[in-house]
Amino acid sequence: MSAATDHIIVQSSRTSRAASIVALLLLATLLAAPWWAGRADLRLFGEIYLYVALACLWNFLAGYAGLVSVGQQAFVGFGGYCLFALAIFLGVHPMAAVPLIFILGTLISIPVAVLIFRLRGAYFAIGTWVIAEVFRLSAAQISALGGGSGTSLPVDIVRAIASSRSGREHAAYWAALAVAILVIASVYLFLRSRQGLALQAIRDNETAAQAMGIDIWRTKFFVYIVTAGLTSAVGALIFLQKLRISPDAAFSVNDWTAFVIFIVVIGGIGTIEGPIIGTIVFFLLRETLADLGSVYLLILGFVAIVVMLRAPSGLWGFVKSRTGIELFPTTRRVEPRRN
């Protein structure tokens, strides 16, 4: 008998199997939300889903590929503007535009990646911000979309989504839920794959990863452009909910990057669960403290500092290091074969 015949490799655990049953029940409940939740709740849930998607994508980029971008608002805004442009100029149905925007976002990110991948560390971060500013200034030049003051989605296009207001809200809600599930599932399946193994190795030690046959540039490039495409699709859905776009709102570093970084850092960078936990904490704080004005932002900063000092790997990282629990198991474990 050899080690190979005596052992098997497993990726799931009892906890993860129980978590997947709970997740399915939760998903069914959330899918049915239009029948049990109020209009304001649906809008809030939709916003939460889109932030979960943005946070998972930023975490994928920074937490796994080590690409700390502070310019992801470039793709949120790009996606939003593409939605308006495709719908207004080309008559594309807004829902059908979303997958097209994924492709456009991926394509536009290729020259961006080729340019900014020449930069390292802090220079890379600043470079991404500069690119986002270039995107914002370019959008402000498009007079057909309102230039610097922006524009609203025409009524006939809004009605094309659904004839009634509630129908439109339900469609926007389900689209947001679908994109959040798509993003989480994509990240999870990628991390369980052969390429995901490479990405985790890069996260831990680039020198060793390269010496073990991993093409670091190509892996990071792939992660960057796919993340950009999906972030653009999320951006399109954000402005489909808002029905209005302007350069300042679309390319806001605060809304689409700073808050997202806060979410990932407090939730747990480099874990799939972290961004989800972080989004829930962020919205709990926002919904209970937002009326306090600037004090609310001070409290957010305080929470971030406390978490970074007491649990540097985030809330989920703290739980995982003490319990070993993985709700989305990517770790491969060696177990004795039972006959």
Partner: peptide
């Protein structure tokens, strides 16, 4: 490596697996 360079947040098995699948 003279100074070991493990993939610290991955298991021992996964460290080996990186080399087997990619190397």
């Amino acid at each position: 490596f003279q100074i070991p360079q493990p993939f610290g947040a991955m298991t021992v098995f996964e460290n080996a697996l990186v080399a087997a699948t990619h190397g």
